[in-house]
């Protein structure tokens, strides 16, 4: 029986029967994998805290080549991300990032860039105490993650006419997947009006490593735009509302 061994993060953990759990891992080498962790809810389980969401670990699982559900053999923690789990504000943001990856990531479809991105996001979130910055980090993570699965917004020139984007206001059309110039916006009712600065900031963030994103400064106006643009862009591509999204307002 094939063995799956990989660095992995736990995206979610679901009870199965009285004492088992189904763990959804996002692994570095195999993409998303699901595995049953036997006896997890018993106090003396060797898995217990190891298979909680947002744990970064080295997992080993067994299963047939095409099995939907593997059997978890071991799980050794690399980084527990306790600072994320121990803070309600950080936790809410982590849940949204995990749900997005869970929805978008196909099983056994490797996405190493997305994996590193998620880790980078949780590391940054661990030490970010400012609620507004946490929101921005999450949106920029979503934007960059969508790009790793092929949904890359077009931000350089107008998606309608190809013209330059000149300020102060432009538009963003989630369906066309990009920015609309100040001239075309009047004839594009689907585009939402945003500051050109917001589009530029998003463009920059797509070219920067996640670790350096905190250099980017967004005033409340730009942040409001980015919130709206990214949420719309994600929703259009995943074709549903994310369940964890409403928790951000709690």
């Amino acid at each position: 029986m094939p063995l799956y061994e990989s660095p992995a993060v736990v995206l979610r953990s679901m009870k199965l029967g009285d004492t088992d759990k189904i763990i959804t891992f996002f692994t570095l080498y195999y993409g998303k994998l699901k595995a049953v962790a036997k006896g997890t809810t018993k106090p003396k389980s060797r898995f217990a805290g190891r298979v909680e969401p947002f744990v970064y670990c080295n997992m080993i699982a067994f299963g047939k080549e095409k099995a939907d559900l593997l059997r978890l053999n071991s799980c050794d923690i690399i980084e527990p991300f306790g600072l994320v789990r121990g803070d309600f504000e950080k936790l809410k943001h982590a849940f949204v990032s995990a749900e997005l990856v869970d929805i978008c990531q196909k099983e056994r479809d490797t996405n190493m860039e997305g994996f590193e991105l998620l880790l980078a996001m949780w590391r940054r979130l661990s030490v970010e105490g400012d609620a507004r910055k946490q929101d921005l980090l999450l949106r920029l993570f979503e934007l960059k993650y969508m790009s790793t699965i092929g949904f890359h917004p077009f931000l350089k020139s107008c998606v309608d006419c190809g013209g330059d984007i000149i300020g102060p206001k432009a538009g963003f059309n989630a369906i066309k997947g990009g920015v609309v110039c100040h001239k075309c916006i009047t004839s594009d009712p689907a585009a939402s009006r945003v500051f050109v600065g917001s589009v530029k900031l998003m463009g920059k963030s797509l070219e920067m490593p996640f670790e350096k994103l905190d250099r980017l400064k967004a005033d409340p106006g730009l942040q409001g735009d980015i919130d709206k643009i990214v949420a719309g862009f994600v929703k259009y591509h995943i074709r549903r509302n994310m369940r964890s999204e409403r928790f951000l307002a709690l």
Binding site: P43, A48, I77
Partner: peptide, 11 residues
């Protein structure tokens, strides 16, 4: 009754 050695890092 558990062993410290076998406890996971989170716990």
């Amino acid at each position: 009754g558990g062993d410290l050695e076998y406890a996971d890092e989170v716990t």
